[in-house]
């Protein structure tokens, strides 16, 4: 399988106060099975990049190429977890997952897809809430359903847009550990957008640090050479972890200063 290529990606928004180029000349390749974190300050355009990869927005210039073909819209080989759970309110948790599974695998038997949806609810630890509607579930549980929905599609690419940003810190840790487990169980290509340094270090193989917007680009890339399987406590005990953490924080710090001046 060939890498996902992002070439000269540029996005300009035409606002009433004039054109605003959020991202300019963003380049990277993402290898199959790689977990990549896009890290940067809020508003630096990292979510815009992800949303273009998802096909929800068009690039102004450049583009995203999968298997030698430029994408021109959303595709079922790319599943997305949004910052808010974004579950359809009229469907139960299970039906939300099932809808996605049915879309991704329309040729499967109904029963087979149903079992798969149930399996993924079990994997995210909320099998017993399958028959409840989103409004009856806590924010954390809803986000678990959203994660189950994306993973159950068994897509080639998982796009995670600050998936834990809206959660309290305890729930966030729980779901980060869950994501570590899910990715360890079955290697997948994951692109994670985050502004949480520890989250990026815990989850990813490579961190792409973005410079501050406007006109954000790839500032630095860091290979996270920490052994897998990872656990939060084991990772934090390694000297390499702190070296990388400091490097990232320094980068973010210096760029936020640049931004202020």
């Amino acid at each position: 399988m060939r890498p996902l290529e992002i070439t000269s990606l540029t996005k300009t928004f035409y606002t009433p106060t004039g054109p605003q180029t959020v991202v300019r000349d963003f380049n990277t390749k993402i290898q199959p099975g790689e977990i990549v974190a896009l890290l940067g300050h809020s508003g630096c355009g990292k979510s815009t990049v992800l949303s273009i990869i998802a096909g929800l927005q068009d690039a102004t210039a450049g583009g995203v190429v999968i298997d030698g073909r430029e994408i021109d819209g959303p595709g079922l080989e790319r599943a997305m977890v949004f910052q808010s759970p974004s579950l359809l309110p009229s469907l139960t948790a299970l039906d939300n997952v099932l809808l996605a599974v049915d879309q991704a695998h329309p040729k499967n038997r109904r029963k087979q897809n149903r079992e798969r949806a149930q399996k993924y609810l079990r994997l995210v630890g909320i099998e017993e809430y399958g028959s409840q509607r989103p409004a009856e579930l806590s924010q954390g549980t809803q986000q678990r359903v959203a994660i189950a929905r994306a993973f159950a599609m068994e897509p080639r690419f998982l796009l995670l847009d600050e998936p834990f940003g809206a959660l309290d810190s305890i729930t966030r840790c729980e779901l980060q550990d869950l994501l570590v487990d899910l990715c360890a169980a079955k290697p997948r290509t994951v692109i994670l957008v985050t502004h949480d340094v520890d989250e990026a270090l815990l989850l990813s193989d490579r961190i792409i640090l973005m410079t501050d917007g406007p006109e954000a680009r790839v500032g630095r890339e860091i290979d996270v050479a920490l052994p897998r399987p990872r656990s939060r406590t084991a990772v934090m005990d390694t000297p390499a972890y702190f070296a990388m953490r400091n490097e990232i924080l320094e980068f973010l710090e210096s760029h936020s200063k640049q931004f202020q001046h």
């Binding site: 096909g55 929800l56 819209g73 079922l76 790319r78 997305m80 974004s86 879309q103």
Partner: peptide
């Protein structure tokens, strides 16, 4: 959010 989900799920 719901519109995005509808798009992503095609």
């Amino acid at each position: 959010d719901y519109i995005n989900v509808a798009k992503v799920l095609r």
